[in-house]
């Protein structure tokens, strides 16, 4: 996966302003940044749901934005995506959700679909929840089902959008090691988008940190920890004071409070 000079704006708001990234095959690459920097947007650009204003996103040698819809759909079959909130199909049970890509894209016999689905559900620890409906799941469980669904077709690449948010410490640990093992065992190309610093650093092969439309730091987790950039240090250690403002741009606080309501 190669990203070159990527620029993308939503109306006035420039979300990416010339980003370059290389995401190597068979590795786990983490992309980190504060929320609202456009991590989800980046994944949508990679998946071809959004088109960049300038620059290119190449996946497996193909420029995603240039693909015709047939070719794009073929490419997406080789790609799994875990949505931030799971995006499970609410009218289907957990089992049917995981079976969905298999039923849509293969002609496998029912027995085999069953075995595959149970294997994937077992991997995320939810084999027993197969008959529940999505509305009966907690947020963390829903995301794990969505993970099982994302890997149902044994894709070559998987994009994970915030897989760790909302997980209790136990499933968090399982999930972290699961991502790592999946990547190694299946030779997956994984892109992990997250703002959970420690978890991401502990499993990623390579890390990009983005902020305000730019890549501010890149490197292996070890080199990142050594980084002298005050920005990175603030982000990694979660300090509220530093070059990154906690506040959304706003007029002066005092002046705002004193101003007459209008």
């Amino acid at each position: 996966m190669r990203i070159r000079g990527l620029r993308y704006a939503r109306g006035e708001q420039v979300i990416f302003d010339g980003i370059d990234m290389d995401i190597p095959r068979g590795r786990l690459t983490a992309i980190m940044g504060p929320s609202g920097t456009g991590k989800t947007t980046l994944l949508r650009l990679i998946g071809g749901q959004l088109r960049p204003d300038a620059g290119s996103v190449e996946v497996a040698g193909q420029n995603v934005a240039r693909l015709r819809s047939k070719a794009l759909y073929r490419l997406r079959q080789r790609m799994g995506m875990l949505f931030q909130n799971g995006a499970l199909l609410t009218d289907l049970s957990v089992f049917e959700n995981v079976a969905f890509p298999l039923r849509e894209h293969t002609r496998l016999p029912e027995r085999m679909i069953r075995d595959l689905v149970l294997m994937k559900l077992h991997a995320v620890g939810l084999r027993g929840a197969r008959d529940l409906m999505p509305a009966q799941l907690s947020g963390g469980m829903a995301r794990r089902v969505a993970l099982a669904r994302a890997i149902a077709l044994d894709p070559e690449m998987v994009l994970f959008d915030e897989p760790f948010t909302g997980q209790d410490p136990i499933s968090l640990g399982v999930l972290v090691s699961l991502l790592r093992r999946l990547t190694d065992a299946l030779g997956l190309t994984s892109v992990l988008v997250s703002h959970d610093v420690q978890e991401s650093l502990s499993i990623a092969d390579y890390v990009y940190v983005i902020s305000e439309g730019q890549v501010v730091e890149r490197g292996t987790p070890a080199s990142l920890r050594q980084s002298t950039s005050p920005w990175v240090q603030q982000f990694l250690q979660g300090q509220s004071d530093g070059p990154v403002p906690f506040h959304y741009p706003a007029p002066d606080y005092r002046a705002d409070l004193l101003a007459e309501g209008s």
Binding site: Y73, R74, R76, M79, L89, T90, P101, A146
Partner: peptide, 21 residues
Amino acid sequence: LMKATEQLSAMEMMAVNPLHR
């Protein structure tokens, strides 16, 4: 609601055309 909860998006990413499915 399927659109609001990104179910249609998710289908697209699973290479399933929501207009057809």
